[in-house]
């Protein structure tokens, strides 16, 4: 019996030799336990060594291998070929990002936005090590744990129509991470983050389309985080009107 195959239509862009991107069709062996990333690695090893793409862990943890698979943002390490058989499978770089080469996108904008929300524990004053660790109850952990599962894969940005229309939008993952630290009982940085999180370019730009939460491979629910931050922003407004001396 002939070996079953499946066709991959892969987005190619080599800025050193091409003005415009093209699609290149490849035929790869079809195996039920292969994911799209396996097929791409097969191509890279056996057919076309010039094909460029990011990947690392192969198990949905590192967030490196996000791509558009048949038009949907997916981690290529968890998009099984059998979901698309008999194909073809169209593989493109993440939407809404500048393409650097083939399936590799530029992530500088995302990294700058991530940094702008200070996604780390901020303390007014660090307590000395001799006083021990910052203790946290299981209930306190549960308030933010879901949002700490983000792997910065940027699928939510590729799915977000607002980010596609308005590149200044701080975006789902960055706001969800800001929310994660704002909810953390050990954190004291909410007043620092709110200048960014409650800005026009952040929560108020979101129109709650919700696709970010649909495509999130870690079930983080960034759309829910943004809505909760909007409610906190409205509360901040009320506080600043009723208690102007207490609002920083």
């Amino acid at each position: 019996m002939a070996e079953r195959t499946i066709t991959l239509e892969v987005f190619r862009y080599r800025p050193d030799s091409e003005q415009e991107p093209t699609f290149q069709s490849y035929t790869v062996p079809y195996r039920e336990d292969w994911v799209v990333l396996d097929a791409l690695n097969y191509l890279k090893d056996e057919t076309d060594g010039s094909l460029s793409f990011r990947w690392s862990c192969r198990m949905g943890v590192c967030g490196s291998c996000g791509m558009m698979v048949n038009g949907t943002p997916r981690l290529s390490c968890s998009a099984f070929l059998k979901e698309y058989y008999p194909g073809p499978v169209r593989v493109e770089p993440l939407a809404n990002f500048p393409v650097e080469r083939d399936l590799i996108v530029g992530i500088d904008d995302f990294m700058n936005k991530l940094k702008s929300v200070k996604p780390w524990i901020v303390r007014d004053k660090e307590q000395p090590v001799s006083e021990g660790e910052y203790r946290q109850s299981p209930a306190q952990l549960a308030t933010f744990k879901q949002y700490s599962m983000c792997i910065n894969c940027m699928l939510c940005y590729a799915a977000c129509p607002v980010y596609g229309l308005q590149p200044d939008f701080v975006g789902p993952a960055a706001i969800a991470l800001a929310h994660r630290y704002n909810l953390d009982s050990r954190d004291q940085g909410q007043s620092l983050r709110k200048e960014v999180v409650f800005s026009h370019e952040a929560v108020w730009e979101c129109t709650f389309v919700g696709e970010c939460s649909v495509v999130c491979p870690k079930d983080v629910d960034p759309a829910g985080a943004i809505q909760q931050e909007k409610a906190l922003g409205a509360l901040d407004l009320v506080k600043s009107v009723l208690m102007p001396w207490g609002s920083r």
Binding site: F198, S199, H200, W204, A231, G233, A234, D236, L237
Partner: peptide
């Protein structure tokens, strides 16, 4: 970027 109180106000009316 700066906190937008106008947007917070309009969104509050929207949400309510």
């Amino acid at each position: 970027m700066a906190r937008s109180k106008n947007e917070a106000f309009w969104w509050s009316l929207f949400a309510a």
